[in-house]
Nucleic acid binder design. Structure first.
Lengths: 191, 191
DNA sequence: AGGGGACGCGAACAACCGTTCGTTTGCTTT
DNA sequence: AAAGCAAACGAACGGTTGTTCGCGTCCCCT
């Protein structure tokens, strides 16, 4: 089954660099020294390939935040952990994350709906973190939905500018960004 | 010249909804009750159409922040003004802004380069705002590049979730978001 | 040793792509 | 009324798209 993995990996790279519709099945095949039609021994549809990439990425985001929520209970620790985990998922697999954020609209209506449902669930977990911080008096009483959107904006936009060959590690960047966001959330006094 | 404007408007909508490569010249023509080939009396290339949309959007962002920098000098006022202006450009022309952020990579290498240069210039102006705030002792001594990236993440991601038919006005949202970001930047004491 | 299944080839498919072009239409100007 | 002109038609172009399929070829299992 190593071949399918190879195909996915090449597809991730090309889809992320050129976009889904600007990448042909023959482009993917060429990078593997194969003929276009040969890919259909391993995949059944070009869209299935996109779906596989998007589905896996979505799964990783969910698993990452669930692990944090399971292990941490303090709002600030949860916030830092979830932010760091989100950034790590992107950094660990930048092409797949890029495809996830950029190309999910090209999926069929049903699959698009599934992505949206997963995204809503993910955002609800983040809102829970923010809500918990306010309820425990650690965060200022800001609008939960709006603050969550701001946080996720920074977290999601990360894929647009992060480059692994850059000078700073993803963890170091994640910590600095989450510190900046926390400063806007936490009540004046202690961090 | 009204016809070209019609074409641009339809192209903005379709490109933003389905993506550039998923929209054919015939799709655009159909919405105008025209034949595919008829568009070529007004445009010279499909890519030229995309370029026109992207170019105009980029221009609006630049003009908006330049006006703010010209009128305001206080760092906090500049920050609030620039953020509000950025969000207003997106809200005022959501389809074009969506195409700008989402499809600029599909342009030719030279035009892509021009977009990048403009974006760098825009970001430099934002860094100038943050830098000025720190220098005057109004903002905490954060990393200018990183803080600017965080702010622009929230500002740019706005197009992904803002819907004009929603309950809150773009200005009200912009003010709340910029307040949240400012709280993370400003030194403890006064706002 | 021999049979079977996975894998890859390469030609072919219908559909669609962006773009061109000769022709027709219909309005405006003289 | 005639001439001119921009706009739209509609057929056609060469190329590319995703996908199919019959055919070999190689390796693994018994």
């Amino acid at each position: 089954m190593g071949r399918l993995e190879d195909i996915c990996q090449v597809a991730e790279r090309l889809f992320s660099e050129r976009g889904y519709h600007a990448t042909s099945i023959r482009d993917i095949a060429r990078k593997l020294h194969l003929q276009g039609g040969s890919l259909y021994a391993h995949i059944s549809t070009k869209e299935d390939l996109l779906w596989e990439i998007v589905r896996r990425a979505a799964e990783q985001f969910l698993q990452a935040i669930e692990a944090v929520l399971r292990q941490e209970s303090d709002p600030v620790a949860r916030f830092r952990g979830a932010f760091r985990a989100h950034v790590a998922v992107i950094a660990r697999n930048l092409p797949a994350a890029t495809v996830y954020f950029h190309e999910w609209r090209q999926l069929s209506p049903q699959r698009r709906e599934a992505v949206l449902q997963q995204r809503d669930l993910y955002e609800a977990m983040w809102r829970e973190i923010v809500h918990g911080g306010i309820e425990q008096g650690v965060f200022r009483p800001v609008d939960v939905a709006m603050a969550t959107r701001a946080v996720l904006s920074v977290a999601n936009w990360f894929y647009q500018w992060y480059r692994p060959e850059g000078p700073r590690s993803a963890e170091s960047i994640a910590d600095e960004l989450s510190e900046l966001l926390l400063a806007g959330l936490v009540k004046e006094g202690q961090s």
